[in-house]
Amino acid sequence: MTKILVVAEHAGGKLNPATAKCVACASAISGAEIDVVVLAADASAVADQAAKLQGVKKVLKVENAANAEPLAAVLAPQIAAAAANYTHVFGPSTTFGKDLMPRVAALLGVGQLSDIMAADSAYTFRRPIYAGNAIITVEAAKDKKVVATVRVASFQAVGEGGSAAVEAAAVNAEIPTHTRFVTRSAAATGRPDLQTAARVVSGGRAVGSADNFKIIYGLADKLGAGVGASRAAVDAGYAPNDLQVGQTGKIIAPELYVAVGISGAIQHLTGIKDARTIVAINKDAEAPIFEVADVGLVGDLFTVIPELEKALG
């Protein structure tokens, strides 16, 4: 019997959409029983949201004042304890899941599968390696727990309408005090979140300066899009690092991706391979971005974008 425990990611009392994508990955395994675990100081609001996800059987609440901030060292022993009766433990391949899940796996004495993009069976998965330049099919040992992070860009979130039972779970785990949360600085932009946005406009080095990056924000706002940036633009200080799209930044799969002044290094392409439609605007007709773009326009971004904004009305 395949029993999958999905670790919920949440902040400010809101369930992160990445959780619904982990449930979607778990649902792809036939006959799997899926539970979600929510760790928080007060887990009620998030647990209720998780209970509505299609395909979830039960939601476990693990409440402790120490769980107020998502510190891997604090959460991992509790998840490892809660995972005792499960064959699989899934978490999202976000910075939260990447930080946490390997620690859970090691406490359980097993390895981990990172970034799974497809579940062919309960023990056979596909995942990208070498910055997405190769896809491997991996078979996990059946006598061990499978701990994995799910590549959120590869799955459509399950819908709502479920009504899973919510239970408080008592876990017996020693919680360390050697790790303490200090502060978090989030860029509050009011724009759609990069990882879940249906449309994303990204700027690259050719934008030229932090001040010029306003042109990217302007187009994004016109399209109701999230904003991204290439590593070159982030390294040059044109855009904050949490906007970086690529192998070492965020991997996204929007309906529409508009790459402005981005040449299209392998590192960047890895982050957008699964976008439905890629539009590239670049001065250089030889830029590699045009090899993957569905629609390409060779032109100066400082001429093209104002025209485009005007055309969008």
Binding site: T95, F181, V182, R184, N241, D242, K250
Partner: peptide
């Protein structure tokens, strides 16, 4: 460097 921006912890 986390998805939401920057986070500081003390260990």
């Amino acid at each position: 460097e986390v998805d939401a921006g920057l986070e500081t912890i003390e260990v």
